[in-house]
Design a binder for these strands. Structure first.
Lengths: 186, 186
DNA sequence: CTCCTTTCTTAACAAATGTGAACGAAATTG
DNA sequence: CAATTTCGTTCACATTTGTTAAGAAAGGAG
């Protein structure tokens, strides 16, 4: 039983135990190997994934360069709603940085959940809002903070990730070169 | 008749003339003076606004500094859906950089539109998607381009805005100081 | 129109970040 | 385990951007 997930669901809407049980029942376990993709550019996203253990990265590719958008570890959600809800090809990639254990929620199953309890749409709205806010904050950080400040902030807000995410991805996320990150770390 | 707006609506969903007429009828004209706010932090957003003429800016305030998120001119939409759809206080500000003529759509009227033709939700989804993508692209630009490249790109993509948006806002949007922008412009 | 405030530009210097290259550590593969 | 590749660090030097300050230009108020 994914206790953390259930706790989160309760904190978002006032769902009955039966609703929650129905929702949990629609989840399928799966594992993604390190380096494997959960979603690739061009694909239509057909699942959301709740991370039970492991680590994954949302990223976009511009001019052949991977630009990390987000790192997701335990108790976070993987998915790209633009593609998932509109069934359009994704311009986002998601790949595992460690072997990652997931609870999968397919679009079909989510539809069934909505039919039983439409208020589960609150989950999607909540998630959309969170990613938008987090995206805006990251943009603001890139806009007004120095590289050093961005690194310290990243460390404070993600103390667990520093030793799990490769440095060149952290550097790319912070908008600097790996050499500059090395310099800052001393 | 806002021809441009009607054209956009048609391009998003296959709406009947009657649906579109009903939608257009729910819009109210208004004017915002230069410097006035369409939405202020802490307020609940109760309207979306289609820009007929003028120019406005979405921005957030961090540590007392205004960080522009977006500049919106003719035929663009003003609004912050997080606050508008969830009726929660906004952490976004929107203010006019020029006297701006708007077509207002209230939450109540949008509700009426949905009742007549639920597929108008496609508009909101489309708008959400656009802002998310544009936000991600801006983040990527801040991450991997130099200040000079960001400025040239901004000029190319917004040729009309260079002479309408104050330079210190453009500089802030690009993540550099006004003096650096001046230097680049020479 | 004139005064006053705000915005824009310029310059010299300081600080931060990028570049290219070399080396060692760590991880992966067979 | 050995071989190979990838990743992280360090350095010297080039380039970019920030800082401080001053004056010019533009815009608004009376």
């Amino acid at each position: 039983m994914p206790e953390e997930l259930i706790k989160k669901i309760r904190s978002i809407g006032n769902f009955s135990d039966a609703d929650i049980a129905f929702f949990i029942d629609k989840l399928d376990e799966t594992v993604i190997a390190k380096g494997e993709h959960f979603l690739s550019e061009g694909q239509v996203s057909r699942h959301l994934g709740y991370v039970v253990s492991g680590l994954a990265m949302h990223y976009k590719v511009y001019d052949g360069v991977e630009i990390p958008c987000d790192f997701t570890s335990e108790n976070g959600w993987l998915g790209y709603l633009n593609s998932f809800t509109n069934k359009t090809p994704s311009d986002m990639n998601i790949k595992a940085l460690e072997e990652t254990r997931l609870l999968l929620l397919s679009a079909d199953n989510l539809e069934k959940v909505y039919q039983v309890q439409p208020r589960f749409m609150l989950l999607k709205d909540h998630y959309t809002e969170l990613s938008f806010i987090s995206n805006t904050r990251h943009t603001a950080d890139l806009t007004m903070l120095t590289a050093k400040q961005r690194y310290y902030k990243f460390m404070q807000e993600n103390p667990g990730l520093i030793n799990r995410v490769p440095q060149y991805y952290i550097a790319a996320y912070l908008g600097i070169k790996p050499q500059s990150l090395s310099r800052i770390r001393k």
